[in-house]
Design a protein around this nucleic acid. Sequence first.
DNA 1: AAGTGCATTAATGTACGCATTAAAATGTGC
DNA 2: GCACATTTTAATGCGTACATTAATGCACTT
Lengths: 218, 218
Amino acid sequence: MKKENLEEFAYDSIVALILANHYRPGDFLLESEITERLNLKSRTPVHYALGQLVARGFLDKKSKKGCFIPPLTPEDAEHVFFTRENIEFQTAASAALHASDEEIDELQMIIQQETQTGESGDVIGYSAINETFHNFIADIGKNKYLQQFCQYVFWRSNCYIFFSYYRFKVSATEREFKVSPAQHWKIREAIAKRDADEAGKLMKQHVRRTFEGIFNKI
Amino acid sequence: MKKENLEEFAYDSIVALILANHYRPGDFLLESEITERLNLKSRTPVHYALGQLVARGFLDKKSKKGCFIPPLTPEDAEHVFFTRENIEFQTAASAALHASDEEIDELQMIIQQETQTGESGDVIGYSAINETFHNFIADIGKNKYLQQFCQYVFWRSNCYIFFSYYRFKVSATEREFKVSPAQHWKIREAIAKRDADEAGKLMKQHVRRTFEGIFNKI
DNA sequence: AAGTGCATTAATGTACGCATTAAAATGTGC
DNA sequence: GCACATTTTAATGCGTACATTAATGCACTT
């Protein structure tokens, strides 16, 4: 267990709380409430952590009022997924150009685990592995900037995926758990062939299908 | 003049100091030194502001040691400009799809001002207007995420441009001041024609030429 | 001379109390 | 009963003192 200070602890904890759907888009995150919840003695590290979340765009802020999760809107969703398509097109293409054999093996492991978790119906667990897959592709590309952007748009797009899940429950979402690993597998194959165009194209399609999967239901 | 608190003041001031080349890549930015320089009474707002700069990736941080400007390296430059090419391809293409007539007029004004400032030889001033141009293109696209990413990679790429300038002085850089506005003008024309592919392509070329302009000299 | 460990130092990290302020609640005149 | 001024409240913003720790230097040993 890596040693982290309270600022980092607060940051990680708040992210976890948001991802666990503890706060809804539009909610204000109160420093004192979070401090209490995390059993911290002072607001200081929480204040700092919230500042970082705002800087990264995970939260919006009204001066002297507080931080809140940016509300979800259809236009915002379009912007997020459009950006994600293009960022992840690049990460996948770059991955195809820079992947080592070990990394391609590692991808296989991730997809196997994803398939299993998908069958078990564990939504949180599945989401975590899905994130691992997408971020790992970005890691393979070895471009710090693409990695950073990928992580962010993925996180934001996940807000919509979760929202869709909590609203419409299992229904169509469960089917995604079976379709998605198959698409991931094809992307891995393109990367294994070092085919950058193909990998990028498949990734773009995959992201678009995720988007359509969410919004066709509404 | 918009009312800002000390946290925002500290943030803006530190950015300005970095852009003014007051700190070099690799330097540690000391909270107490900055506090003194900005005539603030306590490190608190500075600490917070530095946290934000780290969160945005403008600075790196070593726990308990301090924040510093990520060192400039050839690989990093490639990553930055590669990412910038792709982000700005999208911002320019999106701009072509969403530009209003007023925004196209505004672009014209910016380029005119740019041409004048370029002729005057004011490097800092020119850089500021150049940034305005690129960010305004992103604004026209009306995609919050692309805007954010564009702003960031532009800033980082500017570190390299400044570095190149301070190291090799005027020489080739001065020529850029005449070439660049011409390229900007062509991009504007493509946007005015609402030709997204063309606008994107020209922007990508423009960014690549900037990159080559810097590294051919070395 | 080189390496090891302890003491020092200089920086960040944290706690806590007070200052400030935006928004809600309350009061007041009409 | 409504508009507007005022007070209260509840939150962030800030200053100060102190805690913690990574790096540094120095003495001491081998």
